[in-house]
């Protein structure tokens, strides 16, 4: 499906008034890392935790191991308020801008242009972060907050009302004009139709993962897709 001109491209936003006037407050983020045993040319991967992941990034530990085994330097971040990342100020007032900031900060901290992989609300944050960071590729797993599936669960909404309002009512992320290879993946059997529609809308590819009842899906198909979607690093380019 890639290559069709169905994707809606967002205009480039050069004016970032609130970014200048009220920059996001710094915080110390929980980041877990895994390095491959030998140095490779594969781009590093940044995993972004879902709002439901117990312990934030710690829940993504199996993915880190799998990515490192596939030769990627891997990191997993908990956006503020999740896992061990503290939000300065009240936790319930966390905003999307802060989450995007956390993801982009950790992406640029990696040694090379990174692949962003997000799950659930993490996928939503990645979709927005693509406007702030020119990722090498992006993978959105069971995205929440995109057209077709907005509801992250009532508990999550009530815990973080500002974020919840943006999830439900905020603008859809559209693709940046220079867009990286994009993959939608789902481990949720009943969501095939919605996900295919999303993939068409973003002229992305889609992939079905196997997972048993809400467990962390097996990342092998994603890593395989990355191997095909990313051009092998050509010598001297």
């Amino acid at each position: 499906m890639s290559g069709e001109v169905t994707a809606r491209v967002a205009p480039t936003r050069v004016w970032r008034r609130w970014e200048w006037a009220r920059p996001v407050r710094p915080t110390t983020r929980q980041v877990l890392r895994a390095a491959p045993s030998a140095e490779t040319d594969a781009p590093p991967i940044l995993f972004v935790a879902d709002i439901h992941d117990p312990g934030g990034a710690a829940a993504l530990q199996p993915w880190l191991g799998a990515a490192a085994e596939a030769g990627h330097l891997a990191a997993a971040v908990s956006p503020r308020g999740l896992g061990a990342t503290v939000r300065p100020g009240p936790r319930f007032a966390v905003t999307r801008r802060e989450w995007v900031h956390d993801v982009v900060q950790e992406a640029v901290a990696l040694p090379r242009r990174a692949i962003l992989v997000g799950r659930g609300t993490g996928a939503w944050v990645v979709a927005h972060a693509l406007h702030r960071y020119p990722a090498a590729a992006a993978v959105l797993i069971d995205p929440v907050g995109l057209p077709g599936r907005r509801m992250p669960g009532i508990g999550a909404l009530l815990n973080r009302p500002r974020l919840g309002a943006t999830l439900l009512l905020g603008r859809d992320p559209r693709l940046p004009s220079v867009s990286p290879p994009l993959l939608f993946a789902s481990a949720d059997g009943g969501e095939h139709k919605a996900l295919s529609a999303l993939a068409v809308r973003y002229s992305a590819q889609s992939e079905w993962l196997s997972a048993a009842g809400g467990a962390l899906p097996d990342p092998a198909p994603i890593l395989a897709w990355l191997g095909t979607a990313l051009p092998a690093v050509p010598a001297g380019a």
């Binding site: 200048w20 710094p26 915080t27 982009v104 640029v108 702030r132 960071y133």
Partner: peptide, 15 residues
């Protein structure tokens, strides 16, 4: 200050 100086797609570290 930092938000004005950095490249928009490569923000300076929070530190």
């Amino acid at each position: 200050s930092r938000p004005f100086t950095q490249f928009p797609d490569f923000p300076m570290p929070d530190s």
